Amino acid sequence: MKTSMTVLLALVFTGTLTAQTLSKTERKEAVKYINWCTKELKKSLKGLSEAQLNFKPAADRWSPQNCMYHIAFSEGALRGALDQALKAPADPKAKAELKTTDEEIKAMVVNRTNKVKTPEPFEPEKTGFKSLAEAVAAFDSKRAMLVDLVKTSNADLRNHIVTLPVGKMDAYQFILFIAGHSNRHTQQINEVKTVEGYPGS
């Protein structure tokens, strides 16, 4: 008994019983996915004229600029939810009950056959942005912080749980969700470009 206690104390003080951090592979894959989503978003907006940016397929549909306002606001709001989850205690028991894989999370968030009603604060006109440049700058700042978190955080991202209306996921999966959310609306921007009446310039 005395020997066991001595070993336990030794493990504690040498840091062996610290929180489980991400593997190099997990960090690499997340950063790769985040950067790809960012690149696709920027590509979808590149070179668009004012007429193209503000074109709406219908009165109740979003323009490319509307989409960017929503993406930028959501990036900050979702990061806030992530930070709150990381402040709460890790919950390995809740993690063990999660069955959704990382790939399923990514597929779910970009699947635009699943229509979701946007909460009012996330509506483009409610975000407070006044220009595309302002929204892009806000997005770039938050996205850089997300990449930095993945690269440097020692938090136990696999055992902190985030609860959303769509279900529960671990914090690492939620990071993938945040990145995928921008890609979901990148698809929407690209869909707008195919609508009849979209300006040629």
Rank of each mutant, 00 (worst) to 15 (best):
S4N: 04
M5S: 02
T6A: 08
G15F: 05
T16A: 08
T18H: 13
A19W: 09
Q20G: 06
L22F: 08
K24P: 01
T25R: 11
E26V: 10
E26N: 14
E26K: 13
R27T: 14
K28P: 02
V31G: 07
Y33R: 12
I34G: 12
C37M: 15
E40W: 09
K42M: 10
K43R: 10
K46I: 05
G47F: 05
L48V: 06
E50K: 06
A51N: 10
L53N: 02
N54Y: 01
A59W: 02
W62F: 11
W62E: 05
N66S: 09
M68E: 00
M68A: 06
M68P: 02
Y69R: 07
Y69H: 09
I71G: 03
E75P: 01
A77L: 08
A77V: 12
G80R: 03
D83I: 11
Q84H: 01
L86E: 07
L86M: 12
A88P: 02
P89W: 03
P92V: 05
K93H: 09
K93C: 02
K95T: 05
K95V: 00
E97W: 01
E97L: 13
L98A: 09
T101F: 12
E103G: 07
E104Q: 15
I105H: 12
K106D: 11
N111Y: 14
N111W: 13
N114C: 00
K115E: 09
K115M: 09
P119Q: 03
P119K: 05
F122D: 12
F122W: 09
E125K: 13
E125N: 06
K126L: 04
K126P: 01
K126T: 04
T127R: 00
F129A: 00
K130S: 05
S131N: 01
L132R: 09
A133S: 04
V136E: 08
R143M: 01
R143I: 08
L146H: 07
V147P: 11
D148G: 08
L149N: 14
V150P: 02
T152E: 11
S153H: 15
A155T: 12
D156S: 12
N159I: 03
I161W: 03
I161H: 06
T163H: 12
T163C: 07
L164W: 04
P165I: 13
V166S: 15
M169I: 11
A171V: 04
Y172K: 04
Y172P: 00
I175D: 11
I175P: 08
I175C: 15
F177E: 10
A179G: 14
A179M: 15
G180Y: 05
S182R: 04
S182Y: 04
H185C: 13
T186P: 12
Q187M: 14
Q187S: 07
I189M: 11
I189L: 11
N190R: 02
E191Q: 11
K193W: 01
T194Q: 13
V195K: 12
V195H: 00
G197R: 12
G197M: 13
Y198G: 00
S201Y: 03
